[in-house]
Design a protein around this nucleic acid. Structure first.
Length: 417
RNA sequence: GCGGUUGUGGUGAAGCGGUUAACACUCCGGAUUGUGGCUCCGGCACGCAUGGGUUCGAUCCCCAUCAAUCGCCCCA
């Protein structure tokens, strides 16, 4: 009986790796342009980091974490997202000492115990960016722009930027209270889920697929009417900046980020190619998180992007780079294994890309493999070549063939590149 | 976590209660001894996801499990 990869995990096979590398390269390129430096944090952390950072009561923490007790009796969790870890690293390594604004990005695996479906895996990969230390709306706009530039340059179309503000600890309680008041006499009309949301996080009711469309929702209090002056002004400026650089967006009063640490700006980028899992990227400001994790109050903003989802969308658009890396030569050996091995090694050491077949098949079969391998040359060695210390070179596209001295093979191959 | 659909070789797939599980592609071997891409010939499922059950008999019926997929939920 074969053992398969655990549910919700996937091998990234050789024929796919090009896509990953292309996407990752583009991410690094854009980040360099925007001045973000790469950081890599551990795949697992103390469970408490996520409980405090993401917040108990969120779905991610309450039912989706891979948590276990290690041999030292510590509660450990496979990271379900990377923001909390990056902030932890920022604090632990005192990165704030270097400058007021620290701009970081990461690429790596995240783990969430969820029911798998297309675009949703238990181990998945995120690219993300965190700008820590500056509360100006310019940073919000920059982060959003970075995300859009990345997606655009990768050739993704059908994108929508959704924007909202979720207020701050000053104004959110006010809004929350208004909502609770508003829904208090409508509980009977809400779905079961929403009744629990009413207790835990009434803002989520607005986002509900079942109740969201009901008439009275139109009359529900709007966050924009409850914002404090600071939040209102911040939101206004973010929009102004985006408009100034020609970015289109939709204000979506229902957009509520699922993690507790968000404040002010919240955004999401959706791609209509993606079906149910339409959110490719999402993020927002989280001015309260650093303090929550024991640092001094520091504003920050970031976003994360799901790489698998991105690749799905790119595949549908057929926007991925093709390119095959041709190999230079295929060594065909007729009972001259040692000599062939010597030849192959010498050429590889000289920087050429050389393939061969070790199965000692018939010459015909080897030639077939040579042709299929995409090699430009078949490098044929047999009794004669061993005796004369030569190599027969056959150009596989023109069928021209000649025999040259062992030491001249490299030159002959390179010349025809 | 909830509901629907699906599960036949390397791939795409036919079969749907009863002899050797169709076909195509791929792959492997061969068409005289050291030469490819075309053509021709031949080969490749100890078996129809796994485990039970019904039946004289099951790939085809039933149940469970596992997995994939779609939607819900959540989110990236």
């Amino acid at each position: 009986m074969l053992i398969n990869a655990p549910r919700g995990t996937k091998d990234i096979l050789p024929d796919q790796i090009k896509n990953w590398i292309a996407v990752e390269n583009k991410m690094r390129e854009i980040c360099a342009r925007y001045g973000y430096d790469e950081i890599r944090t551990p795949i697992f952390e103390h469970t408490e980091l996520f409980q405090r950072g993401i917040g108990e009561g969120t779905d991610v923490v309450d039912k989706e974490m891979y948590t276990f007790v290690d041999r030292g009796n510590r509660s450990i969790t496979l990271r379900p997202e990377n923001t909390a870890s990056v902030i932890r690293a920022y604090l632990q390594n005192k990165l704030y000492a270097a400058s007021t604004l620290v701009k970081l990005f990461y690429i790596g695996s995240m783990f969430r115990y969820d029911r798998p479906q297309a675009g949703r895996l238990r181990e998945f990969h995120q690219f993300g960016v965190e700008a820590i230390g500056e509360g100006n709306p310019e940073v919000d706009a920059e982060v959003i722009l970075l995300a859009l530039d990345l997606l655009r340059e990768l050739g993704l179309e059908g994108l929508t930027l959704k924007l909202n503000t979720v207020g701050c600890p000053k104004c959110r309680p006010v809004y929350r209270q208004k909502l609770t008041h508003f829904f208090s006499d409508k509980l009977d009309e809400l779905c079961g889920d929403c009744r629990t949301r009413y207790e835990k996080n009434p803002m989520r009711i607005l986002d509900c697929k079942i109740d969201g469309g009901k008439e009275f929702m139109e009359e529900a209090p709007k966050i924009k009417d409850c914002l404090c002056d600071e939040c209102r002004e911040h939101f206004r400026q973010v929009q102004e900046l985006l408009t100034a650089v020609g970015v289109e967006y939709e204000i979506d009063a229902r957009l509520v980020r699922g993690l507790d640490y968000y404040t002010k700006t919240a955004f999401e980028i959706r791609c209509d190619e993606l079906g149910a899992q339409a959110a490719v990227a999402g993020g927002g400001r989280y001015d309260g998180l650093i303090e929550e994790l024991g640092g001094i109050s520091t504003p920050a903003i970031g976003f994360a992007l799901g790489i698998e989802r991105l690749l799905i969308a790119l595949e549908k658009k057929d926007r991925l780079p093709k390119g095959e890396d041709a190999i230079d030569g295929f060594v065909v050996s007729m009972g001259a294994a040692a000599y062939a091995f010597e030849l192959m090694s010498a050429l590889r050491r000289a920087g050429l890309r050389i393939a061969t077949d070790f199965a000692k098949r018939s010459m015909k079969a080897q030639m077939k493999l040579a042709a299929r391998s995409g090699a430009r040359f078949a490098l044929i060695v047999g009794e004669d070549e061993v005796r004369d210390r030569t190599v027969t070179i056959k150009n596989l596209s023109t069928s021209e063939q000649s025999t040259v001295a062992f030491d001249d093979v490299k030159e002959a191959v390179v010349q025809c590149r």
